[in-house]
């Protein structure tokens, strides 16, 4: 059979890469990202222990994270609403790697939750805690564990993590779609 790929390229091992001629450059950049109108309000809400969303009356969504515009209807969103802060796990992962791909012993529980009181898929990414690997599941009701008021600065990390909410009824979000 005809093979027309004639590959070129000199592979190097990690050691060889340090032995061949090379240059090392360290990036020296700092950023100050403008938080913007909606997110500023949201972060200020977190500092007060509140989860704030923004309504769009046209598509009937509550946008969390909030935006001043609805990207689907392409119109100004309508008003701020406070959500109860509880929700259900939409998806999760148990991570044995950190942000730089280093292996870690104690895994990080992370996932996306959908907030109660809002349509499906209205939610954010955050950590989960006080839950075991066997117990965590999609559809699990959760509630936020806040840092003490004095330690909150207006950041997503003002919530330490979300933990299972005792006595809550499983949400309809946990229902599986039938295949095919």
């Amino acid at each position: 059979m005809k093979e027309t790929v004639k590959p070129r390229g000199k592979p190097l091992s990690g050691e060889e890469m340090k032995q061949v001629c090379h240059v090392v450059a360290r990036p020296q950049v700092k950023y100050a990202w403008a938080v913007g109108v909606a997110m500023s309000h949201f972060l200020a809400g977190l500092k007060q222990g509140k989860i704030l969303g923004r309504t769009c009356v046209q598509c009937e969504r509550i946008l969390v994270p909030p935006r001043m515009f609805c990207e689907r209807c392409y119109r100004t969103t309508d008003e701020w609403v406070e959500l109860p802060g509880t929700g259900v796990i939409e998806t999760f992962s148990i991570s044995y790697i950190d942000t730089d791909a280093n292996r870690i012993k104690e895994p990080i529980f992370v996932g996306v939750l959908a907030f109660d009181g809002a349509p499906p898929h209205s939610g954010i990414m955050h950590y989960f805690g006080e839950v075991s690997q066997d117990a965590i599941h999609i559809g699990m009701p959760v509630e936020p564990v806040w840092k003490p008021g004095g330690e909150r600065v207006g950041a997503i990390t003002d919530i330490k993590y979300f933990r299972p909410r005792e006595g809550a009824r499983p949400s309809s979000n946990s229902k599986r779609r039938k295949r095919g």
């Binding site: 950023y31 990202w33 938080v35 997110m39 972060l43 994270p65 992962s93 991570s95 790697i97 950190d98 942000t99 730089d100 791909a101 992370v110 954010i124 990414m125 955050h126 950590y127 950041a155 997503i156 990390t157």
Partner: peptide, 13 residues
């Protein structure tokens, strides 16, 4: 940078 990065995510997540 505001919502996700403070959680120190890895893209694999």
């Amino acid at each position: 940078p505001i919502l996700d990065r403070p959680l120190k995510p890895n893209l694999v997540w």
